[in-house]
């Protein structure tokens, strides 16, 4: 049986805009993945707990409030602390170009900003997971 890719789509922080997260979640589902959506206003602890309970392969973080520089590294650290540092962590939303390199340094594998097509994201996830399971 082909192993299903499981993805957590999470909205850490306080902004209430999840249109983008929902579009991405639907695109990943339509690409044949099992997508768990957390809903709005998640603390890093909640995101990490959900990622562990659901044993997802991928954690997708969406943020539009500007708190990424604080929340994303915290999520990555907590995942490592809980023995789940092997998950692919990707991000999207309103994230300034200048911050992307910093985020990549702390363990965010890729950042998808405005203008990204859903196909770019689904293809990226498929490729990454396939290369990991080899």
């Amino acid at each position: 049986m082909e192993r299903k890719i499981r993805v957590l789509v999470a909205k850490p922080g306080l902004d209430g805009h999840d249109r983008g997260a929902k579009v991405v979640a639907s695109a990943l589902r339509d690409a044949g993945m099992e997508v768990v959506y957390t809903g709005l206003h998640q603390t890093p602890e909640m995101v990490v707990e959900a990622a562990i309970q659901e044993d997802v392969d991928v954690v997708g973080l969406s943020i539009l409030s500007g708190a990424h520089a604080v929340l994303f590294p915290k999520i990555v650290d907590l995942l490592k602390e809980r023995g789940a540092g092997d998950k692919l962590v990707i991000a999207g939303g309103i994230i300034p170009e200048d911050d992307v390199e910093e985020l990549k340094k702390v363990g965010i594998a890729n950042v998808f900003g405005p203008g990204t097509t859903t196909t770019e994201i689904t293809e990226y996830v498929k490729k990454e997971i396939a290369s990991r399971s080899k």
Binding site: K4, A25, G32, M33, V35, Y37, T43, M46, A50, Q53
Partner: peptide, 30 residues
């Protein structure tokens, strides 16, 4: 989905209040 095999598992959205309780373990299944 019978067509793509994908699934959107949204039950956790309604379970925020039990999110980080160490006495609770929630698993979504398709």
């Amino acid at each position: 989905s019978p067509f793509t095999g994908g699934a959107l598992l949204g039950d956790r959205i309604r379970m925020q209040d039990i999110g980080i309780d160490p006495g609770v373990f929630v698993r979504s299944m398709a």
